[in-house]
């Protein structure tokens, strides 16, 4: 991996799906955690049903799957600090930042579009 040394790319992880029902959210989080070792300029955006991934007090007992939401709290330790939620997705689902498990920055759809345009890499989950 010596060739990657010195090159920093803007990597944007786009999380669009609900935390349960499909595995995308969990496997996306695994990419972000592993990816932290590459020391790139990373950001995460949660939009559409993806905003539910950060919802407080998730209870998965009845589903029989693991509640992995506490792992989002570890992102800070991995130096993943640019975490955004899309304003419109939050509003339409009746969510505010107080409903979320970690501190986030709220961005409008227009701002998200701009950020996507500026990113070198978009990984959609």
């Amino acid at each position: 991996m010596e060739e990657t040394a010195g090159e920093i790319k803007k990597i944007m992880y786009v999380n669009r799906k609900a935390p349960y029902g499909t595995i995308y959210a969990l496997e996306a989080l695994e990419v972000v955690l592993i990816g932290a070792a590459f020391e790139q300029d990373v950001m995460m955006i949660f939009m559409d049903d993806g905003v539910f991934q950060l919802k407080k007090e998730q209870d998965t007992k009845a589903l029989g799957v693991k509640n992995f939401s506490p792992t989002y709290r570890a992102l800070e330790m991995y130096d993943v600090e640019k975490i955004y939620v899309e304003k419109e997705s939050m509003e339409v689902r009746g969510l505010t930042v107080d409903d979320l498990i970690i501190p986030v920055e709220v961005k409008s759809n227009e701002e998200v579009t701009k950020m996507m345009g500026e990113a070198d890499v978009l990984l959609n989950f």
Binding site: V31, I34, G35, L123
Partner: peptide, 14 residues
């Protein structure tokens, strides 16, 4: 998964 990240960094387009 490092292979995904490395490809993202090395490639011109992912």
């Amino acid at each position: 998964l490092g292979q995904l990240l490395e490809a993202s960094i090395q490639a011109d387009r992912m």
